[in-house]
């Protein structure tokens, strides 16, 4: 079975995020990048499936991102993925979700696939659109925010669980399918040292837009990020003090009406 896992390189959750001066992105100095947390669940689910099936099943990582993404790709390879396709092109510095979906879908199609796992969303921009875009472009079903996954006994269909308000949902899907994983579906493994050593020798195939047969940016202009803006500076806290509580309340009301102009 050809198992595809997608991964995105995102800033670490603890990193201090600052918008750059031009408003075209975030400042990258002092920011550590890691595998998107939800994609780790996707990798783990792919690896678990491979281990269960054995034989010539194979897990291939797909990642679209800058050159530095090889670091996170190696982490996925160290966890146990077999090889990787890294789509890296200067034109794809800050692609819109439509573009990312179209490019990834093309690369996945070229590779051939039976099932795709990925995270339910990127923890950086939280669009959660790429997965749907890929499903659409490949014409395959998509099950989002999966909390469990298994193959049917004959291996022909996917059985996916989802947590919904007040209960669980069981979904059966034809293959191939793209499954987006939620926290709790598994516990992603910690790469073993032999895994890390082996990962150094595993193949990462780099693809540019041209390699994938795109003459121009796919889906360009369907949506684009206009500008990144820093959060407005947090207001200052002012304590309203008075001898009597009732006076303090009066003063607070006056301030809210006259200065803050919100009542």
């Amino acid at each position: 079975m050809k198992i595809i896992v997608l991964l995105k390189r995102v800033p670490d959750t603890e990193a201090k995020i600052l918008i750059n001066q031009e408003g075209t992105g975030i400042r990258k100095d002092g920011v550590k990048f890691v595998i998107n947390t939800y994609d780790e669940y996707g990798i783990e689910e792919g690896l678990k499936l491979k281990e269960k099936l054995g034989g010539d099943s194979k897990v291939t990582v797909f990642c679209l991102g800058p050159e530095e993404s090889t670091e996170v790709i190696r982490t996925a390879l160290a966890m146990g993925a077999d090889d990787a396709v890294h789509i890296c092109d200067p034109a794809l510095e800050s692609p819109a979700p439509f573009t990312t979906s179209a490019v990834l879908a093309k690369a996945i199609k070229d590779e051939g696939f039976d099932i795709i796992f990925c995270g339910k969303q990127g923890i950086d921009d939280d669009t959660a659109q790429v997965q749907g875009g890929i499903a659409e472009a490949l014409g395959i079903p998509q099950v989002n925010i999966a909390s469990s996954f298994e193959l049917s006994e004959d291996g022909s269909r996917a059985l996916i669980g989802r947590r919904i308000e007040g209960g669980n949902e069981k979904i059966e899907s034809a293959l191939p399918v793209i499954v987006t994983c939620d926290k709790g579906i598994n516990e992603p493994r910690y790469a073993s040292l032999p895994g890390i050593m082996k990962a150094k020798k595993k193949e990462i195939r780099t693809r540019t837009l041209a390699d994938l047969g795109f003459d121009e940016m796919p889906a360009a202009g369907r949506s684009k990020i206009l500008k990144w803006l820093p959060l407005p500076k947090g207001g200052e806290c002012r304590m309203v003090e008075a001898e009597e509580v009732s006076d303090a309340v009066k003063e607070l009301a006056r301030l809210l009406r006259e200065e803050a102009k919100i009542i």
Partner: peptide, 10 residues
Amino acid sequence: VNYNPWSMGY
């Protein structure tokens, strides 16, 4: 990632 045992940004 952050060079400390707690999850605090380095």
